[in-house]
Structures are given as structure tokens and as C-alpha cells.
């Protein structure tokens, strides 16, 4: 999900109808939002973009959209141009965490409120932005852990868990690991017997799982930090003559389409959603900050979890 792409083959989806010049004074109610997206590196991100665009249309907010193609300088340029165009609110998903102070100060001086989406910045001056809307990765890890504890609450034997971590050092990898550990750590019967990075990719997930299966003959549960690694691991488990979902229970995070399909097919047991559909929440927040109403400094995306049964009913309507 947080894949760094070289040259993202992204289309600059300049949202049609540029809002009638700069006629977006405070009083007339119509809001113009400048949104700078990271890129189009994954299905998750594409769904995120669509959600923002559709929600803006539904909320009657004029959206100026730009795609940074994974480059911070493009994002800074886009934000500067939004400041010049005097938009009412700026929202963006930072490509990287640091280096935003200058451009955010410019926005603040121009009295344009800023909302961060999906990813945070490490700026010490929190007055530079109004709020940060995004997933709570630690909570995602906790949800995964809670389901596991619930499943094995009557079991007396130790439960052997292997973990496929995301890219080493990335926020989702660190936090999903910590949240999971926090919940299962309370009961000593849960043992993480092996934990390695699978770089969030299917190929690595499969390769690492192959090695896990050989080094540890007795694996009960696999916890993968995203669907793709889980999907790779499923192939490894099948190759070893075991049945994924039965012999080895599988928990993943994300709920992208292929993952949901595997969940509905019974190969994955539980998926914690990391939803890209934060458009509607973003538009609500935008309306509030433009009206100068107070908002919470941290807003968590509305997310759910899926069991196999829920996946079967949810799958036809999934947007990504």
C-alpha cells in the first residue's frame, strides 16, 4: 500500500468545471477544495482518489485535484498553486513525512486551512494543519489480535503464530505489529514463533512463507500486515499440502478486492479493513473548518472488519 513508485503512470484528473474563477468568497456557501494526491500506485490509492472525487461532487464542493506522482516537489508546487488560486481549503496525502513546514506556513499566512489525509507529517508545529484524517494502524493490529483471542479462547494448547510484516520501518508495519502484540501479549499461550518482512508484496509473502513452513512444522495462525502478502502465503501453504483457512488460520489487513475474494472463498479467515473511502468524512471536515468550527486534531477513518460470511455479502458492492 505504501509502495514507492518510480514514475507513476498517473493521469492528471483535473476535475471538470474549474469553479467559475475565484468566485469562492466566504459567504456564498460554495467551497473550493484543493486536493493533492500521492499518486496512483495501487488499487487502494485509486479507490481513495475516486472516493474523494465522488464525495466532493455529492457535497457540492468544487474539487481541484492534482496527482503528485510520488514526488514531494510536485506536491509542494500543487499546494502553492492552490494558495495562489485562493481555494477555501487544502487537503493532501503527504508523500513523505518531513519537509512540509515552509509550504504549510505559507498556507497558514494566507489563512487557508489544511487537512491531512491518510498519512501524517512530522511537523512539531501542529497549528500548521487543522486535522489529520486517516486510519489508525495500531487499532487495526488490535482488531486482528482481538479476533484471534476470541477464536482461541477455549484452547488450552499453545497457539503458534507466524507474522508477515510490511516494509521494515514503515508506519503501517510498525503499528500493526505493535497493536497485535499488545492484545495477544496478555495471554502467554499465544506465541509468535517467526516474524519476517514480506515487503507488502505477494512474491515476498510467498517466499517467506515457504521458509516458515519448512523451519516450523507446527504453524496454527498466519498474521499478514496486508492482503497481498497473505495471498502469496496462501499459495505457499497450498504447495505444502495444507489447507489455508483450515490447517492454518489466516488474518490479514486491508480488504482489497483479491483479498476479499479469498476471504469469501474460505482461504482467509478474517480481514481487518483499512478503508480508502474517506471522501465523505473529508468533505464533512472541510465544511466545518471553512466555517471555522472546531474539529478534532485526529479523526480516524470509519473502518470495519470482515469475517468469511460478511465478505460474501459485501463482495458484490465493493468499490475496490
Amino acid at each position: 500500500m505504501l509502495v514507492v513508485a518510480g514514475l507513476a503512470a498517473a493521469t492528471l484528473t483535473g476535475c471538470g468545471g474549474s469553479g467559475g474563477g475565484s468566485g469562492s468568497g466566504g459567504g456564498d456557501g460554495s467551497i473550493t477544495m484543493g486536493f493533492s494526491q500521492v499518486g496512483a500506485e495501487s488499487g487502494w490509492r485509486t479507490a481513495n482518489t475516486k472516493s474523494v472525487q465522488e464525495a466532493a461532487k455529492a457535497a457540492g464542493i468544487t474539487l481541484k485535484f492534482s496527482d503528485a506522482q510520488q514526488k514531494q516537489e510536485n506536491q509542494i508546487k500543487a499546494i502553492r498553486s492552490y494558495i495562489q488560486q485562493k481555494v477555501d481549503v487544502i487537503a493532501f496525502s503527504p508523500v513523505v513525512e518531513s519537509g512540509w513546514d515552509t509550504v504549510l506556513k505559507e498556507a497558514k499566512n494566507a489563512k487557508i486551512p489544511v487537512i491531512l489525509t491518510d498519512r501524517a507529517v512530522d511537523s512539531k508545529d501542529t497549528s500548521l494543519y487543522k486535522t489529520f484524517l486517516g486510519s489508525d494502524f495500531v487499532e487495526e493490529g488490535r482488531k486482528a489480535g482481538k479476533w484471534l483471542v476470541e477464536q482461541y479462547k477455549d484452547a488450552k494448547d499453545p497457539v503458534n503464530i507466524v507474522e508477515l510484516q510490511g516494509t521494515t520501518g514503515s508506519a503501517p508495519a510498525n503499528d500493526r505489529k505493535a497493536g497485535f502484540q499488545e492484545v495477544i501479549g496478555a495471554d502467554p499461550k499465544f506465541k509468535i514463533i517467526a516474524s519476517q518482512t514480506g515487503d507488502f508484496t505477494r512474491a515476498k509473502g510467498k517466499e517467506v512463507m515457504e521458509a516458515f513452513l519448512k523451519a516450523n512444522p507446527d504453524i496454527d495462525v498466519l498474521y499478514a500486515h496486508n492482503d497481498d502478502m497473505g495471498l502469496g502465503a496462501i499459495e505457499a501453504i497450498e504447495g505444502a499440502g495444507k489447507v489455508p483457512g483450515k490447517d492454518i488460520k489466516i488474518i490479514t489487513v486491508d480488504a482489497v478486492h483479491d483479498g476479499m475474494q479469498a476471504l469469501a472463498d474460505g482461504k482467509i479467515n478474517y480481514i481487518v479493513e483499512c478503508s480508502p473511502l474517506l471522501g465523505p468524512q473529508l468533505m464533512d471536515l472541510a465544511k466545518k473548518v471553512v466555517k471555522n468550527e472546531s474539529v478534532q486534531a485526529r479523526v480516524v477513518t470509519e473502518e470495519t472488519t470482515f469475517t468469511q460470511e460478511q465478505a460474501k455479502t459485501a463482495l458484490p458492492d465493493r468499490k475496490y
Binding site: 513508485a5 518510480g6 514514475l7 507513476a8 503512470a9 498517473a10 499518486g39 496512483a40 500506485e41 495501487s42 488499487g43 490509492r45 485509486t46 505477494r202 497481498d228 483479491d258
Partner: peptide, 18 residues
């Protein structure tokens, strides 16, 4: 090396093709 990565992403439209 640089352009080819972009070409691959162009072919896949930035998505994972299953």
C-alpha cells in the same frame, strides 16, 4: 532502468494484475 519501471506501471495501469 528508470523508464522501464514507468513502462511496466503504464502497462499495468499502476495496479496489480491478477
Amino acid at each position: 532502468m528508470v523508464a522501464g519501471r514507468g513502462l511496466a506501471q503504464l502497462i499495468t495501469d499502476g495496479q496489480i494484475i491478477t
